[in-house]
């Protein structure tokens, strides 16, 4: 029996009743509203401070505009998530994540706790303030349609193996940003390392239930695609759910240990506070 045989949708009233009867459904991948009612509240966080609670589907994406001082937790529930991240200054989105500066200015290629995610304008967009995984990548970006077509045989956004770039392109479009607004991204929860000759060695996941906390240092447009890392050696499109929670917190202060850790970081946070003060943020 097809679904059409069991549903009464012949009239508008019947169709409306049928539509409304679906509203209390649940999915493994969904946003929880209001965020305070999340079934997975982060330990030690007052639920009333939550502004974002969601589980992102494997192969899915999410996006949000968050205020300065928002703390965003990305959690790899099953150990197979890969969170491809882009952040933009929500007020001037041509200021955005600059991966080269994010690696070069801290003199460190590998992302971890305390690492600033820098824009190309000499400011910190977000800080990695906690990290229980340590398996991340800032070299390889995300997958393209061409990559997924070769690797999985399909890259259609409506198919079984959408690319990270296609996901980020859709997320960006919902904030008025086009394909040309997407710079290289970073990814969390699937790591790699660089050998002496430059070759990448796959590190993969640190296991289930790890998380990364990002602190928004400016108002941000946050785009996240949850798709396999391009160098994931598994031939199948394997990716697990990604949980996202965000709550109101405070931006870094210049004398916070991570902000005062090195001369480069000290000046990066000084620049960021200078911008925020001038804009009245």
């Amino acid at each position: 029996m097809s679904r059409a045989d069991t549903r009464d949708t012949a009239s508008i009233l019947a169709a409306r009743a049928d539509a409304r009867s679906q509203g209390d459904g649940v999915s493994d991948w969904m946003a929880y509203l209001p965020a305070a009612r999340t079934p997975y509240p982060p330990a030690g966080v007052d639920p009333q401070l939550l502004t974002w609670a969601e589980t992102v589907a494997p192969g899915g994406y999410t996006h949000k505009v968050v205020s300065r001082g928002t703390r965003i937790r990305l959690e790899d529930v099953a150990g197979d998530a890969c969170a491809h991240l882009l952040v933009f200054n929500a007020l001037e989105p041509w200021e955005r994540l600059n991966v080269a500066d994010t690696q070069k200015i801290p003199w460190q290629a590998y992302l971890g706790a305390g690492h600033p995610l820098l824009s190309g304008d000499g400011r910190v967009l977000a800080t990695v303030v906690a990290d229980t995984s340590g398996h991340h990548d800032a070299f390889c970006g995300t997958s393209t349609d061409l990559w997924n077509l070769e690797k999985y045989g399909d890259a259609a956004p409506h198919g079984p193996s959408p690319s990270g770039r296609a996901r980020l392109t859709l997320a960006a479009a919902k904030h008025g940003l086009g394909p040309g607004d997407l710079p290289p991204s970073v990814s969390f929860f699937q790591g790699l390392r660089v050998e002496v000759d430059g070759a990448f060695t796959w590190q993969g996941s640190a296991g289930p239930a790890t998380y990364v906390d990002l602190l928004a240092e400016l108002p941000l447009v946050v785009l996240v695609a949850n798709v396999p890392h391009p160098l994931d050696p598994r031939t199948d499109y394997v990716v697990g759910p990604l949980r996202v929670h965000a709550w109101r917190s405070s931006p870094s202060a210049p004398d916070d240990p991570h902000a005062d850790a090195t001369p480069e970081r000290r000046r990066a946070y000084l620049n960021t506070v200078d911008y925020a003060e001038a804009r009245g943020l």
Partner: peptide, 19 residues
């Protein structure tokens, strides 16, 4: 089509090497 432009991560991922 200037929206299609040089990409560091794509260049590196396809060749599996940082240099």
């Amino acid at each position: 089509n200037a929206d299609e432009r040089y990409s560091v991560p794509d260049t590196l991922a396809w060749q599996g090497n940082a240099y």
